[in-house]
Computed example of a mutant assay.
Amino acid sequence: MTNLTSFVQGLPKAELHLHIEGSLEPELMFALAERNKVSIPFASVEDVRAAYDFSNLQDFLDIYYAGANVLRTEADFCDLATAYFDRAAADGVRHSEIFFDPQTHTDRGIPFQVVADGLLAGMAEAEAKHGLTSKLILCFLRHLDEDAAFETLKAAEPWLDRIEGVGLDSSEVGHPPSKFARVFEAARGMGLKAVAHAGEEGPPEYVWEALDLLHIDRLDHGNRALEDAKLTERLAQSGMTLTVCPLSNLKLCVIPDMAAHPIDRMLKAGLRATINSDDPAYFGGYVVDNYVAAAQARGLDRDDLVTLARNSFLGSFLPPAEIAGHVARLDAWAAAN
């Protein structure tokens, strides 16, 4: 194999698990705080990076929500998206399906329109500048109640032609997918796709619920599904895509070290696993960093890496003809490299 990093960088790929608020780098956080005259609880970029030492998901979320407070205007959200897409394009990402958390912003008094229009402007710029296509997925914060999720879905109605699907994120333990079954049913009735974080910190039962009650089209994380042989078999047989985030798993102590990551077990079990960066500014790596870390720790070979990239297109919400085009270009690239 050629140099691992350059091979992975050149590999055409999609990213299917990326929280746009989680791509807020400390430098941009400081710039936006200054632009909007918002005080933040850090004296320097170095202070922010030092704070990124989490012992669990909640520790991370506390800092994540504090950082999001600097995002105030359409320009801020456009700049946030543009910074991510520039980095993704450099990592060989050809298509990205990004999560956003409107409740994080509307609860601070920022109108839904400001968030959505800012992100959509950044997405349009990325396509014009890099040829990088993208889709937007609205996530409900699971630590809030069902009524708040319904309110958010209602607020999103004018943008539903530009929103691909709904998701479920934030604190997993104690907030099972069943809590949101009715709002997901309503969203699917509006023609939206459904995804959900399940089986990261939560038990395999949460994955069953996501499948049977939320009727998800894609599973975010899903690591703990491997604890249940019947569930693993069901996921494999149904061709369910798992959006796996290795460095996130490490940073949030879902795994003790990268050598314990299950990505190769997922592939051997026939699961349609993909590699993604989750909240890259906070977890120390964008998509190439995640591929490389997983490959080095678990001995993934060239074919495994191509499979993961292929899975990322197969698991996307692009039309079949566009998926076929991406896969053909990926296979041609792999044959030539």
Rank of each mutant, 00 (worst) to 15 (best):
S6D: 11
F7S: 05
F7W: 13
V8W: 08
V8N: 07
V8L: 11
V8R: 10
V8K: 12
Q9C: 13
Q9I: 10
Q9H: 08
Q9A: 10
G10V: 12
L11T: 09
L11F: 12
L11S: 07
L11D: 00
K13N: 10
E15V: 13
E15D: 11
E15A: 14
L16H: 08
H17F: 06
L18S: 03
L18W: 01
H19F: 02
I20M: 11
I20D: 09
I20N: 09
I20Y: 07
I20T: 08
E21A: 08
E21T: 06
E21W: 01
G22L: 09
G22N: 08
S23Q: 05
S23A: 14
E25N: 09
E25R: 15
E25V: 15
E25C: 09
P26Y: 07
P26F: 07
P26V: 06
L28N: 05
L28C: 03
A31K: 15
L32D: 01
A33T: 10
E34I: 02
E34K: 15
E34W: 06
K37V: 12
K37D: 15
V38W: 03
V38E: 13
S39P: 06
S39G: 09
I40M: 08
F42C: 09
A43G: 14
A43E: 14
A43F: 02
A43H: 10
V45N: 09
V45R: 11
V45D: 11
E46Y: 02
D47Y: 05
D47L: 04
D47F: 06
R49P: 03
R49G: 01
A50V: 11
A50P: 04
A50F: 03
A50G: 07
A50Q: 13
Y52S: 00
D53C: 07
D53F: 00
D53G: 06
D53R: 06
F54D: 05
F54E: 11
F54W: 15
S55Y: 12
N56P: 02
N56S: 04
N56L: 04
N56M: 06
L57I: 04
Q58I: 15
Q58N: 04
Q58A: 11
D59G: 13
F60D: 03
F60N: 03
L61D: 00
D62S: 09
D62M: 07
I63T: 14
I63C: 09
I63H: 13
Y64T: 07
Y65K: 09
A66K: 15
A66R: 15
G67L: 13
G67T: 09
G67F: 07
A68L: 02
N69S: 13
N69Y: 13
V70E: 02
L71N: 03
R72C: 11
R72H: 00
R72W: 00
R72Q: 14
T73L: 00
T73P: 05
T73R: 05
T73D: 06
T73K: 01
E74P: 10
E74S: 11
E74I: 03
A75D: 12
A75H: 08
A75V: 04
D76C: 11
D76T: 08
D76N: 12
F77D: 04
F77M: 00
C78H: 08
C78Y: 11
C78W: 06
D79K: 14
